[in-house]
Design a protein around this nucleic acid. Structure first.
Lengths: 163, 163
DNA sequence: CTGCCTGCAAACGATTTGCACCAGC
DNA sequence: GCTGGTGCAAATCGTTTGCAGGCAG
C-alpha cells in the first residue's frame, strides 16, 4: 500500500470514529496499524499477537472487541471461513477470495468479472440484498505438493476439507 | 422432495458407503434421514436434536463425526457461515445462498445465472480451483420488520451482523 | 472374528460476558 | 466529570480427541 493511500485509510479511521462519537484510543490505533498492511487475512488471535509486539499489555478480549467495532464501522471486513476462526481483511471493497480447503489459506482475487455478477431475482419483500461474496475453493500450491509426497492423507473428519 | 427422488438419495447413501467400505450403521441411517428433507441448513446441534427424537441414545459427538463423514462422501454439503456454527445442506449441487446478516438464516437460491460464473484467471500452478460458492448477504423479511419496530438495535459486537 | 464405529468424558479453541478500573473527549 | 473503553477472569459455544466397549460385514 502506498504511503499516500495508507494516510488516507488512517484519516478514514479517525473520521469514522468522530462521526460515531467513539473515542480514538491507543489500542484502536494499534489494532488498526497492525491489520492495515496485512494481506494474509489474519484471525483475531494473529492480530492480537501482532499488536502485542508493540503493546504487550493489550488484552486478547480487547482485540476481539475492537475488530468487531471496526467491522461495524466498515473499516475492515470479516470474512467467514471454513475453519473455526473468523478472518479479517483490511480490504473492504468487493473482491472474491481463493480459499485452500487443505490449509485454510485465503488469497485475494482481483478479477473485475467476478465483481459484476448479476444479483439473483428475489422478491424484495422477502429479502433485501446488500451485497455478495464469492468463495473460490480449491488447493494451493504448497498443499498440492504435500499431497504428492504423502497422498490420501485426508480422513473422514480431517481438517477444514470438510467444507 | 418426491418419494422417488428420496429413494434415489437413500440408494446413493448406501452405495457411497459400500464403495468406501464403510459400514451402514443405525446411527448413520438416522442422521441421513434427519437431514435429507431439511431446507433450513441446520447446524450439527439441530441435526442432533432431530435425530434424538427417534434415537434418544445417540451422542452429540457421533452426529458431528457422521456429518463430517457425509461431507467427505459428498452426501451432504457443509457451508461456512458468518455465525459460529457450521451449517449442513442436503442439496449438494451448485447453488448460491441468501444469508441474513441479522438472524443468520440461510435460504437457497435457484438462479442458473449464478451457477455459470466464469472462474477467475489464476495460475494453475499456484492454485487448483475446485468449485466456488456465492453468499448473497442482506436482510430477511422478519428481521426487516423487527428493525422497523425498534430501529438501530445493532451495537458494535451484536449478532452475526459483523460479517 | 476383526476393524471400524459409537459413546463417554474431557480437552480445546474461539468468542462473549460481568465487573471494577481507567482514559478520551 | 461523564461516558464509554479496557483488562481480567470466567463462562459459553462448537468441535475434537483418547479410550473402552459394541456392532456391521
Amino acid at each position: 500500500m502506498s504511503p499516500a493511500e495508507e494516510q488516507q485509510r488512517i484519516e478514514r479511521f479517525v473520521a469514522a470514529h468522530r462521526e460515531s462519537g467513539l473515542p480514538v484510543t491507543i489500542q484502536r490505533r494499534a489494532v488498526f496499524d497492525a491489520i492495515l498492511d496485512r494481506q494474509d487475512h489474519p484471525t483475531a488471535e494473529q492480530v492480537y499477537r501482532a499488536v502485542r509486539q508493540d503493546r504487550p499489555q493489550i488484552s486478547r478480549v480487547t482485540v476481539h472487541r475492537i475488530l468487531g467495532t471496526f467491522v461495524s464501522l466498515g473499516l475492515v471486513a470479516k470474512t467467514c471461513h471454513p475453519g473455526s476462526a473468523a478472518r479479517f481483511d483490511p480490504k473492504t471493497h468487493q473482491h472474491p477470495h481463493l480459499v485452500c480447503l487443505d490449509c485454510g489459506g485465503i488469497v485475494d482475487v482481483e478479477d473485475p468479472r467476478l465483481n459484476r455478477i448479476a444479483w439473483p431475482k428475489v422478491n424484495p419483500r422477502e429479502f433485501t440484498i446488500q451485497d455478495y461474496h464469492v468463495h473460490v475453493r480449491g488447493r494451493c500450491r504448497q498443499e498440492a505438493r504435500a499431497r504428492q509426497r504423502r497422498p490420501n492423507v485426508r480422513r473422514a473428519s480431517a481438517g477444514i476439507a470438510t467444507l
